[in-house]
Simulated assay, not measured.
Amino acid sequence: ALGVWGAVSGGAAAVGPVLGGALTEGPGWRWIFFVNLPVSVAAVWLTLRVVPESRGTRGMRVDWLGTVAFAGFAGGVTYAVVRAGEDGWGATPTLVSFALAALALVCFVLVERRVAHPLLDLSLLRKPAFVGVMAGGLAFNGVAFGGMPYLSIWLQTVLGMSPVRGGLTLLPLTGAAVVVSVLAGKLLHGVPARLTIGGGLLLIGTGCFCQAVLGAGSDWTTLVPGLVLVGVGTGLVAPGIAGAALAAVPAERAGMAGGAVNTVRQLGFALGVAVSGTVLTSRMRDTLPADAAHTLAGGGAGALRGTFSEHALRAAFASGLDAALVTAGLVGTAAGALVLALVGAGRAERTGGPAGVTESGARTLSGEETASHG
Score class of each variant (00 low, 15 high):
149 P>F: 05
149 P>A: 07
150 Y>R: 11
151 L>N: 06
152 S>Q: 14
154 W>N: 03
154 W>V: 03
156 Q>P: 02
157 T>K: 00
158 V>T: 15
159 L>V: 04
159 L>D: 14
160 G>K: 02
160 G>A: 10
161 M>C: 08
161 M>E: 15
163 P>I: 11
163 P>V: 08
164 V>Q: 09
165 R>M: 14
168 L>T: 07
168 L>P: 08
168 L>R: 14
169 T>M: 13
171 L>T: 15
173 L>C: 06
173 L>V: 09
173 L>I: 05
174 T>A: 15
175 G>N: 09
176 A>G: 06
177 A>M: 12
178 V>H: 05
180 V>N: 04
180 V>T: 14
181 S>V: 04
181 S>E: 08
181 S>C: 07
186 K>Y: 09
186 K>Q: 11
186 K>W: 13
187 L>I: 06
187 L>K: 11
193 A>G: 06
194 R>T: 06
194 R>A: 10
194 R>N: 14
194 R>I: 01
194 R>Y: 07
195 L>A: 07
195 L>H: 03
195 L>R: 10
196 T>K: 00
197 I>H: 01
197 I>K: 01
197 I>Q: 02
198 G>Y: 00
198 G>S: 05
199 G>Y: 00
199 G>R: 03
200 G>L: 03
201 L>P: 03
203 L>H: 01
204 I>F: 05
204 I>Y: 08
206 T>K: 04
208 C>W: 03
209 F>R: 11
212 A>L: 11
212 A>D: 14
213 V>P: 00
213 V>R: 15
216 A>T: 07
216 A>Y: 01
218 S>I: 06
221 T>Y: 11
221 T>G: 13
222 T>S: 15
222 T>W: 12
222 T>G: 10
223 L>I: 10
226 G>P: 10
229 L>P: 02
229 L>I: 04
230 V>P: 10
230 V>L: 13
233 G>P: 06
233 G>N: 14
233 G>E: 13
234 T>K: 09
234 T>P: 09
235 G>N: 05
235 G>D: 08
236 L>G: 02
236 L>T: 01
237 V>F: 02
240 G>Q: 00
240 G>C: 02
241 I>R: 00
243 G>C: 01
245 A>V: 04
245 A>G: 13
245 A>L: 08
246 L>R: 08
246 L>P: 00
246 L>C: 05
247 A>R: 00
248 A>I: 04
249 V>P: 04
249 V>H: 03
250 P>N: 05
252 E>L: 04
253 R>I: 06
253 R>Q: 07
255 G>L: 06
255 G>S: 05
256 M>H: 09
256 M>I: 06
257 A>G: 11
258 G>C: 09
258 G>E: 07
261 V>I: 14
262 N>C: 07
262 N>P: 03
262 N>E: 09
263 T>Y: 08
264 V>H: 09
264 V>D: 10
264 V>W: 01
265 R>T: 14
267 L>A: 14
267 L>Y: 02
270 A>D: 10
270 A>H: 07
271 L>W: 11
275 V>A: 12
276 S>A: 15
276 S>H: 13
276 S>L: 12
277 G>P: 07
278 T>D: 08
279 V>T: 10
280 L>S: 10
282 S>H: 12
287 T>Q: 13
287 T>L: 11
289 P>N: 13
289 P>Y: 07
291 D>P: 03
293 A>H: 13
294 H>E: 11
